[in-house]
Structures are given as C-alpha cells and as structure tokens.
Design a protein around this nucleic acid. Structure first.
Lengths: 146, 146
DNA sequence: CCGAATCCCACTCGATACTG
DNA sequence: CAGTATCGAGTGGGATTCGG
C-alpha cells in the first residue's frame, strides 16, 4: 500500500539525475528518516510524547508536566499528533468535560526511537564543553527542558 | 564534565515542582532526546548528514546530492554542524579552492540514530494512507526528498 | 475543563547579487 | 570553487481573549 506518487527509498537518497528527469505526479524518492524528523520537530512534540509514553494523560496533566507549554501549542501539537495517527483522543461526555490522550500503536512504536535519541543526546551533552552546550541549547527553537 | 547549571536527566522529565522551586543559575534538568532533535531539526541537516555518512564530500558535491539546497542554507547548515562538533571542515590551499567535509566521531555516532529514524519513517510511510502522507509531507518545513 | 479565535513578533529560509 | 551580504516573504509560536 504505497502512494502512487511516492516511492520509499531506504538507503542513499536519490541522485540528481533522477530528480532532474522527474515529472509531476511521477513516483519520487523520499527520505524516511526525514519523515520521522518531520513528525517530531516541533517545539513541544517530543516532550509531549515523552509524557504520553508514561501512560494515558488528561489535557490538564499535560499542561502541568510539559512545563511552559501554552494552551494553544499543546492543543495544536496534540491535534497534529492525532492527525498523524500517533495520539488517540478520547472525550468523556461529562460536565465539566474530561479529555484523555494516549499513544496509539504507532505512537508507542516511537518508544525505541525516543530511547535512541535519548541515549545519543545524553552522551553528547556530557562529553561536550559545558559552556557551548549551554549557549547552543538556549538558542534553539526546540524546547529542551521537559 | 558537566555544566554547573545543567543536569542531565535520563528517563522521565522533571516534575513541575522541581521547576517551580528552581532558581536562576541553579542546576536544571534537561531532556536528552530533545537535544538530539534540536541538533537535527533544520530543513536540510539530516539530508546533509545522510550524504556525509557515505564519506568525505566536497562542497560542490553536497550541492548536487542534497537536491534543492541553496548555497546559503548549505553553508549555514555546515557551519552549525561544525560548531556542534558533528562535521569536520578541511580547506586545501589550492587555486581554485577545495574544501572537504566529513563527519567527526560524534557525527559518525549518529549513524545508528539515523538508521532507527530511517526504519521508523519507512514503516510509517508504507502503512499510512498514501494521500494523507503525501499532503502531510508536502506541508512540512522539513525537506523530505533527499 | 478544554479548547477556538485573533493579533503580532521573531526567526527561518529563499532569491539574488557579489567576492577572494 | 566556495563562499558572503542583503533583502523580503512566509511561518511557527507567544499572549490574550472568548466560547461550550
């Protein structure tokens, strides 16, 4: 089951010639790791997913645990994650309302990915010059403090 | 060797109370996986690293292989990757000039990370609705086509 | 309690032109 | 060949206010 205009290319990205000769709506090679990055590279998403990896969570709890996230960004991130099929949203017909978020199977399949990212980041941050790491990390869009 | 104001926290991100009680220049907990994402989440970096994983490369070659990247973004990305210690830059005193880029040990240590990202992305893209994947991926900042 | 709607700024990135 | 410099558009995200 593969989009007619998408062709998964694992391994080296396609060469220049391939793209030069490509016409519209023709199969094109995409880079899978770039897709994963695209899914995760928003200021708060990784922190949200981290939290959801611990288990089902209410909206309010996420607001507390993901420190610093605004209502707008939390809602927006969750909406995108749901659209991406990584997060499930369950609304209870109560007053006041209650909404619970949890990871789907696809979302949970990110666990080993997160673990690898976590391990690399941890190793990187301890072996680098502390001062550089500090300034580098404060000048990035990505939220680092969980 | 750890920044005095940084404290690496592997595992769950710190709780709200920890941050509430945090004062300036006091040790704070950071999220390692967010660091890794911060390193990679620029429109072209992952594609550049992918290319460098194949071996040393000249500036010109990168411009060809990383299709669509502008001079400005390629230069800027390489400069940041070098500052991050992931890429090494070697200039040869020749005319016309020749500059070669390669991954440092830290950069090469990303290989298993990239592989995991690659595997997850590949699995994701083939099991998802093709139409959704297509629109989702064209509306992202991250460059997907290598 | 869980959002939606609006306004606005900062930053990323692309296009173009220039240089040693 | 391998970059700089500059300008401008688009967008991600913060702050605030309103709604069911």
């Amino acid at each position: 089951m593969l989009a007619s205009h998408l062709k998964v290319g694992i391994g080296p990205p396609q060469r220049l010639e391939e793209l030069k000769n490509m016409k519209k709506n023709e199969p094109m090679t995409i880079c899978p790791c770039a897709i994963t990055i695209a899914m995760l590279s928003s200021k708060w998403k990784i922190l949200i997913i981290r939290e959801l990896l611990k288990g089902t969570c209410r909206y309010r709890d996420l607001r507390e645990q993901v420190f610093g996230v605004s209502q707008k960004m939390l809602t927006q991130s969750l909406k995108e994650l749901e659209a991406d099929g990584l997060v499930a949203r369950r609304v209870y017909p109560e007053v006041p309302p209650r909404v619970e978020y949890s990871l789907t199977d696809d979302g949970n399949s990110l666990r080993p990915v997160i673990q690898v990212l976590d391990a690399w980041g941890a190793h990187y941050v301890v072996e680098k010059e502390p001062d550089y790491v500090a300034t580098r990390l404060t000048s990035t869009r990505q939220k680092i403090v969980g």
